[in-house]
Amino acid sequence: MNPSPGPDSCAALRVQVRTLTAEWRDAGRYTPRSDCWLRSFDLEFSKELASRGLIAMTYPEEFGGSGRTNVERLAVTEELLRAGAPVAAHWIGDRQIGPSILRHGSRGLQAEIVPRIAAGEAVFCLGMSEPEAGSDLASVRTTAEPAEGGWRINGHKIWTSQAHLATHIYLLARTDRSGRKHEGLTEFVVDMDADGVSVTPIVDLSGEHHFNEVRFENVLVPAHRVIGEVGGGWRQVVEQLSFERGGAERVLSSYPVLVELLAEAARRADDRELQSLLGSLVARLAVLRRLCFEVARAMDAGEAPVQQAASLKYLGNAFERDVIEALRRTGRCLDAAPDSVFGQALLASPGFGLRGGAAEVLLSLIARQEARS
Rank of each mutant, 00 (worst) to 15 (best):
S4D: 09
L13H: 00
R14I: 11
V17Y: 03
T19R: 13
D35C: 05
W37F: 02
S40H: 05
F45G: 04
F45M: 09
K47A: 10
A50S: 15
L54W: 02
T58G: 08
F63Q: 09
G64F: 05
G65N: 12
S66Y: 04
G67V: 14
R68V: 09
V71S: 13
E72L: 06
A75I: 12
V76G: 04
I97R: 08
I101D: 11
G105A: 08
A111G: 12
L126N: 06
S129W: 10
P131F: 11
E132V: 09
A147L: 13
N154H: 00
G155A: 11
I158R: 08
L165D: 04
A166S: 10
I169R: 07
L171G: 05
T175L: 08
H182G: 07
E183C: 04
E187C: 11
D191G: 06
D193I: 07
G196R: 02
V197Y: 05
V199N: 04
V203R: 14
D204V: 12
S206T: 12
E208N: 06
H209P: 00
N212S: 15
V221R: 03
I227E: 13
L241N: 07
G246H: 03
A248T: 07
R250S: 07
R250I: 02
S254C: 13
V259D: 11
E260D: 15
A263N: 12
E264H: 07
R268S: 09
D270N: 10
D270T: 09
D271K: 02
L281F: 04
L285V: 06
V287S: 15
L288A: 06
Q307W: 01
Q308Y: 01
L315D: 07
L315A: 11
G316M: 12
D322F: 03
R332M: 13
R332S: 13
A336W: 03
A337N: 02
L346Q: 07
R355I: 10
G357V: 10
G357E: 13
A359E: 15
I366V: 08
R368L: 15
E370W: 03
